[in-house]
Design a protein around this nucleic acid. Structure first.
Lengths: 335, 335
DNA sequence: CTGAAAGCGCTTACAG
DNA sequence: CTGAAAGCGCTTACAG
């Protein structure tokens, strides 16, 4: 039922070697033969068996993509970018969801490594040691984190955090709270450090660290009361979900955003324009990151690049919407 | 660098046949040999090359998953379910995003079919003919749509629609509007039919069809003004995004949900609890659907089931939240 | 420019 | 219970 190279050879009257060449290295075959073979292959619906090809070439034509949670739209977008670019390059994509479990991640990557030419790993949780070990026996590109000696792509978290601070300061805010994400999160550390450095370098801005919260809606609910008690006039949330939780809890406490207090997020997930007020946030071009990670992987897999390219940082952009406003006059004195 | 069955055979002092058996069919090998081989294989970090195995067995150990849009959380959840169940069954998952393009879908499925044992196809857009043709030369399971002779899994859209109607009628509503989704959408047709049938069978309920809208936030924005003009006291939206757009536009028009008018969605996406008021909606257990689709595929691929199982319908559940309320007294007369 | 042959890493009748 | 051999569908030196 399924047509093989042998069927095409028989139908064309040439050897399987010639069929193989006509399809994979057309320039090695006489024009007449080439055309005939290609034509026949197409009408017969022949598609080379990739597994068989991979066995001899050592290339599978597939890449692996490992993400912590497919349900999270952040990773969904990355998948989309990876998928699109991989297809354009003729690669198929294996996907694996690690459920935020570092052990599962390790197991999954190892299971995948034989079946693919390289792996794109979105691993916010795994330890440096675990990731480093994996990098030894497979071509790896890290997304959203760095590790010495391993190519990676990250967003410019620091730049985003500074843009947020500049924006809030321009609106008159001087006492700013940060509702941090998981301490194990690389993104969180980058943002936190940039926020703190910014505050230290401007002598009249105070940064209040509210603590670490789950990176979800209820994390924001928790953080809201602490933020109010802290006396901050603006709250920087670890991400949009936390920001949404903050806004919701503040409303229940009778506080209006942005009239009474300003709130910002990170990520610019679609939801950020669905809550009211629309969230001021930092846009992370996730599809672009997905595409870039495929390029980086193919660079190393195909040996297209001689000098190692340790990390590529993707610029991000502040998106100002309705959740930030000028410092309320009544609070100006407290600053 | 990579360890093959030959390396294990050499290290163990047996033939590669025995190594193969000890690993794949342990009961065919003497206990002592089996233990020794298994032990050695493990310490050497041997993993059978799936491509090579597939070449001889005719089974790839992989399945394909084709979705219209990975960025859409609805499909992200399905992916997650598919992924989890596939891994549990020892299968790897190829993923493909068709960008809502029926032509690309066809091409992608054909490209995949050689590399996998079967395909799970989430294809709300492709024509019956196109899908039928694909079904001929690959093991297929359809998600969220049916087609004669092809196994499929769907949600009980009709049951969900009826539950919504019963709920609204119990709250006193008699004039109910439907903001429909794309007319090409199978889910939309199912919901629409059930809503209409329900209205026809109860002699005092009127269903007003507002027309077809894009299944996104702005679709709801469009529908809101039509709904208001229609005189309906409750609006059933095609999905949660449309419902969110409706609520938002109604607020801008000075209408309060649910005091003045009730709104419901479908899907129960995470966002439905982030908008205010939280949406009354119909929960679709998407992860469960992902898992069920893998089971259905393996049933046919592995021939585990003799009689064909044409369609499995997954029950759904009404989730009552804050966007629906009793019919306002001022409007009771108009019903 | 083309074909015969070897071989990629495995599984599985077939003998013993 | 175990091994030698054939073969899955391809690619690629090696001859010609």
């Amino acid at each position: 039922m399924v047509v093989t190279i042998r069927d095409v050879a028989r139908a064309t009257g040439v050897s399987i070697s010639t069929v193989s060449r006509a399809l994979a290295n057309p320039e090695q075959v006489a024009e007449a033969t080439r055309v005939h073979v290609q034509e026949t292959a197409r009408t017969m619906g022949y598609r080379p068996n990739r597994a068989a090809r991979g066995l001899v070439t050592g290339r599978t034509g597939s890449i692996g993509l490992v993400v912590p949670d497919l349900e999270n739209p952040f990773f969904g977008s990355i998948c989309k970018g990876v998928q699109a670019r991989a297809r354009a390059a003729g690669y198929a994509v294996f996907i694996a969801d690690t459920d935020e479990d570092p052990l599962l991640e390790d197991e999954v990557v190892r299971g995948l490594t034989k079946q693919v030419d390289g792996v794109i790993l979105c691993s916010p949780r795994g330890s440096d040691e675990a990731v480093g070990r994996v990098a030894e026996d497979s071509s790896l590109v890290l997304v959203n984190r760095t590790l010495a000696g391993v190519p990676s792509i990250t967003f410019d978290n620091g730049g985003g955090a500074r843009a947020v601070m500049r924006h809030l300061v321009a609106l008159g805010h001087r006492t700013i709270a940060y509702a941090a994400g998981p301490i194990t999160s690389w993104s969180n550390r980058e943002r936190d450090t940039a926020l703190r450095d910014f505050a230290e370098q401007s002598n009249d801005v105070e940064l209040i660290e509210l603590g670490s919260f789950p990176p979800v809606f209820s994390g924001g609910t928790q953080a809201a009361d602490l933020a109010l008690a802290s006396g901050a006039t603006a709250i920087v949330a670890f991400n949009d979900l936390v920001a949404a939780g903050l806004v919701d809890r503040l409303r229940h406490r009778g506080i209006t955003v942005p009239t009474d207090i300003s709130v910002t997020g990170f990520d610019n997930v679609p939801m950020s324009t669905l809550v009211w007020p629309n969230l001021t946030t930092v846009d992370f071009p996730r599809i672009q990151m997905g595409r870039a990670s495929v390029d980086a992987l193919l660079d190393t897999v195909l040996g297209r690049r001689k000098e190692p390219r340790p990390n590529l940082e993707i610029p991000v952009e502040l998106v100002v919407r309705q959740s930030t406003g000028v410092l309320p006059a009544s609070r100006a004195a407290s600053a």
